[in-house]
Design a protein around this nucleic acid. Structure first.
Lengths: 228, 228
DNA sequence: ATTCCAGCTTGATCCAGGTCAAGGCGCGCG
DNA sequence: CGCGCGCCTTGACCTGGATCAAGCTGGAAT
């Protein structure tokens, strides 16, 4: 079955499970399609389970009263989201919205908890997954509070490059508006920073494609070197 | 035994465990004393286990290259910290230091993992604990990126009051310098904000004791009302 | 009691970056 | 082919809050 293959091969969370566990899991999951822009859940609403991106892209974000948006994370295929209320509190701590046409797997809370209680492999995987998210939060908090915007942009680009094996050309998988939201800045500021980095000869921007001309220089900016 | 009593009664993490599990746990834990100002672990160092505050106070924080400090959390008695590397990565994502003379329980990684694999109650407790931390991170990120300093201060005071049952007088359990670090601002700014809140008749500050004179007004400030 | 000092307050200055406003640019669609 | 609409860039301005620089204060140590 299609779904079982996905669970086994594409999802670190379910790595190492026995086939009959995968079957049990597959039998309780429900896939659903969300068009770009559609809300998946709202902050504060009651959760019935968690979600996994199968295809497309989902943003998790907070809104201020004035409407400013802080993106907490953007998830792609294979990544779970909305786990918190499964284990604590029952309500979502933030909002989720599809940023592209997406297929999303829903995993009901009760069934998942039953599986977790009987399978320590799954439980350890889940503990690792939550720990990874805590680690990312730490990094994000550090970036947002201890780094200036150019540092954050440089760090983001380097991270993107690293994750594609140190490639000299990276492709933004999200719009620049979303990137600004993710980096905790205004779109205008991001635009200006990219320009400055270009003028300094560190990068070249062509739409969503960015050439990293000087990785070391970019690293220096990321580390706080004020060369502009 | 003293230690077992502490584990059973003072720690949500170990709530609901059977006595023989508690015994097993107690037998692998090691308490240690840290004077005020002593480092407990450094970011990036290899972790051998997690910690639990028995008495005193511990701050978890990040440092920028220039030496600015962002406090991520401050933990008191009963609260665990440093869990992340037990389940993922192996290295601490931030620094920990005692902010008061403290007794801290060390729980070795391997023993803990063995217990977790054999006891789903403990595993579910741990999942809940990590989820609670993720939720707090979400709130913290929201406060730091979407709220201005006066809003953060007001929110902190109200939270403090709520946690002591809505008391009209709250006592800061940390120094104002640390509070500034926790709220992502400079000590000078915090001082000025407290003064403004006092002059607006919302609070009265006497050292570490703060009277909340106008909870509704404070709530309004916390929600972004620009009354100063 | 006097000194000392960490912790706090107050004042003055400066700047990163948010906001408002006005175009460009590219692309899908009629 | 050109119209319209997101999305992005550029410019001008303004402000929250960081930083630098003095004092102040209260309690611990002698």
């Amino acid at each position: 079955m299609e779904l079982q293959t996905f669970l086994k091969s594409r999802m670190p969370l379910f790595r190492g499970l026995e086939d009959r566990q995968i079957e049990a899991l597959a039998s309780i999951c429900v896939p659903a399609d969300y068009p770009k822009g559609r809300t998946i859940f709202l902050e504060g609403s009651q959760a019935q389970g968690l979600y996994v991106v199968m295809s497309g892209q989902v943003k998790i974000f907070k809104l201020s009263l004035e409407g400013r948006e802080q993106i907490i994370h953007i998830y792609g295929p294979g990544e779970p989201f909305g786990e918190v209320p499964v284990f604590e509190g029952g309500r979502f701590p933030a909002n989720a919205e599809a940023t592209a046409d997406s297929r999303v797997l829903f995993v009901p809370r009760d069934g998942l908890r039953r599986l977790l209680e009987n399978d320590s492999t799954l439980a350890m995987n889940m503990l690792a997954a939550l720990s990874r998210k805590l680690r990312r939060f730490t990094v994000k908090l550090e970036n947002l509070t201890l780094k200036e915007t150019p540092q954050r942009v440089a760090a983001y680009l380097l991270d993107l490059s690293d994750r594609s094996g140190g490639a000299a050309e990276v492709t933004l998988d999200i719009s620049k508006g979303h990137l600004a939201g993710l980096l905790g800045t205004a779109q205008e500021t991001l635009s200006r920073v990219l320009k400055r980095l270009s003028e300094a000869g560190l990068i070249r921007v062509r739409g969503k494609h960015i050439d990293i001309l000087d990785p070391d220089g970019l690293q220096a900016v990321s580390d706080g070197d004020d060369r502009l």
